[in-house]
């Protein structure tokens, strides 16, 4: 699908007379291309991502979902062979600008990974990590941030009596919420989530889905998911990726009830992937 069609779609979405109209764009991706060596992993991506929404990215494995997500906070550049072209504007500024430091970008854009990856430290030190690297030393302020973040990630009650215990000692689902709390502690604007529930049991998954719903009041969330039901349940917008291209991007209910592209329909109805 070419870019013109995507733009039309976005315009269509915007013209729906809901609260949509007042929402601002957090990320606007323009003609993004990315290569791992010779592997052209992202092709001419154009996407507008809006504030205080949950944007889901779906598509079969290997289609570039994680790569796109990691491009948004430039984590993808840790792979030495990566080359990019095009622009990604975050709040109006091109993140590829030479004077845009990745550290600065990443304090605005948090990330939650597929596999829970707490640090081998106490729960408290995990949450306080972000504030500490950004220079906060005052114990009282740190205490407040830790409590606020843990409450924000709906795990305060479960861990408040064991803040000094190692984060490895809790269940996988709890660890993932600790990781979400750790991200909240840097007070981000956007939260990127790469299949955050794929390593978790159904109950933990449900908890995280509920949490995402709460978090979108304050944050813009972009979530990669392998699970189409999950995308349908929790997202406002859905982008369908295939072989490094955005095939279709629209309101989630439209994507799931009335997709414009045959390939989207095939994927959603489980015909491939």
């Amino acid at each position: 699908m070419n870019t013109a069609t995507i733009k039309t779609k976005i315009n269509v979405a915007k013209s729906i007379p809901t609260e949509q109209a007042v929402k601002e764009s957090v990320y606007s991706t323009r003609q993004l291309n990315l290569w791992y060596g010779n592997n052209h992993a992202l092709k001419n991506i154009d996407l507008e991502i809006e504030e205080n929404e949950v944007t889901a990215i779906i598509g079969p494995s290997g289609c570039g979902k994680s790569t796109y997500l990691k491009t948004l906070n430039r984590m993808v550049e840790l792979v030495p062979s990566v080359k990019t072209s095009g622009e990604i504007h975050y709040r109006g500024r091109n993140i590829f600008d030479a004077n845009y430091g990745v550290e600065e970008l990443r304090t605005r854009v948090g990330m939650v990974f597929q596999k829970p990856n707490p640090f081998p430290k106490s729960i408290y030190d995990n949450i306080a990590y972000g504030p500490r690297i950004h220079g906060i030393k005052n114990r009282k302020i740190l205490d407040e941030i830790v409590e606020k973040s843990l409450r924000g990630a709906a795990i305060w009650d479960e861990v408040k009596d064991r803040l000094n215990e190692n984060a490895y000692g809790i269940s996988g689902g709890q660890q993932q919420r600790i990781c979400i709390a750790r991200t909240l502690a840097i007070e981000p604007d956007v939260i990127l989530m790469d299949e955050p529930t794929s390593a978790l049991d159904p109950i933990s998954t449900l908890k995280i889905e509920e949490l995402v719903q709460e978090l979108k009041e304050q944050y813009s969330i972009i979530i990669v998911t392998h699970n189409m039901q999950q995308a349908a349940r929790i997202s406002d917008k859905t982008a369908f990726f295939l072989n490094g291209e955005v095939i279709e991007y629209d309101r989630t209910d439209t994507i799931f009830s009335n997709p414009a592209d045959k390939r989207t329909e095939d994927y959603i109805s489980g015909r491939f992937g």
Partner: peptide, 13 residues
């Protein structure tokens, strides 16, 4: 590597 990723993703140098 996941620990490095987690740290870099929070803006650590």
């Amino acid at each position: 590597g996941e620990l490095r990723d987690a740290s870099y993703a929070m803006g650590a140098t």
